[in-house]
Design a protein around this nucleic acid. Structure first.
Lengths: 170, 170
DNA sequence: CAAGAAATCATACTATCGGGTGAATGATAT
DNA sequence: ATATCATTCACCCGATAGTATGATTTCTTG
């Protein structure tokens, strides 16, 4: 018997939000001060703007880095083993997947069909897809049939394999 | 502890740099104009600062996205015509794939089961797998059943999804 | 406005899959 | 030597998937 627990922890924690808020507050304070300086020395407009640009661009980059970093840990527990075995894995989720829209349109795959395809790839049954998209089972079957025809496959596993190979889905 | 290295090709191209420079120039122009507005209406300091903050933070996020986006190559598709037995190739796309043997052994997945798993991922039916491994359909069914049990899934599509996620197969 | 694409749903039928159970063999470890 | 595991195979049955065909509606496009 195997028990596998998985947890995707986005670095979107309270701590990070607070950190950002703090940084933002600090920068705003700095800006207030610079504002004052600006009113006194009316000449430093360029420097002022450049400073703002650099600061906030950096802030944005940092924020993006923080937000897109995904941590993944897999914990395995077996009843045979007395001690809990913890295995850490460096999961590299592809956050920046770009679907090959050219191929998608070339094959004439519609938006709905692509949705169905994604759910198939996620391992959902036709019934589950139907429930999730609020349509009937028959509708899902129609979508899958057309999809298989367009992808030139006859089974969902083949569809997933081909779709991934053609970068239609992540 | 595992460390998996993947070839990240940063999109740090001349085009992107120029694009950013252009965007920067645009925003600076906007700021110049806003500067003027600011001098006329001295009251809008808060709004002004907030605007700058949002614009440059967004710009930073966008830049980070651009810079960290990985490039992927499109693999040419092979067409298989009339053949008695269709031979599925187990994962050739990613040459640098390293199976997570630790997880495989932790889950107690045998070599034969892994073979079956690969063929399932390639889109083969149980009968096709049986033909290819020179065993009976029932044997393949047994393998798949045990595999699903060990992977804690109930369908082949889920098995493929999970196996890929856990780096058991490419 | 007509033609066509997209999405929807239905019925009927066949193929494939998955669960449950049982069992035989050979290798390996205790 | 015996226990465990991996591999092999079998049978049954219900669930899920896939094919074929036809139909309605909405929305876009020529």
């Amino acid at each position: 018997m195997h028990f596998i627990f998985e947890a995707d922890m986005k670095a979107f924690t309270l701590r990070n939000i607070l950190l950002y808020a703090l940084a933002m507050a600090g920068v705003l304070l700095l800006l207030q001060w610079m504002e004052f300086q600006f009113l006194v020395i009316n000449r430093a407009a360029e420097v002022y703007i450049t400073g703002i640009a650099i600061i906030f661009t950096s802030l944005g980059i940092w924020l993006a880095q923080k937000l897109t970093r995904t941590k993944k840990e897999v914990i395995k527990e077996t009843i045979v083993v007395e001690k809990e075995v913890i295995v850490y894995r460096a999961g590299v989720a592809d956050e920046t997947f770009i679907p090959d829209t050219k191929t998608i349109s070339n094959l004439g795959i519609s938006q709905r069909e692509l949705e169905v395809l994604s759910l198939i790839a996620a391992g959902a049954t036709n019934q589950e897809i139907a429930d999730q998209l609020f349509v009937s089972l028959n509708t899902v079957k129609t979508h899958t049939s057309r999809l298989f025809e367009k992808l030139d496959v006859s089974r969902r596993t083949q569809a997933v394999e081909k779709a991934k190979r053609l970068h239609l889905i992540p």
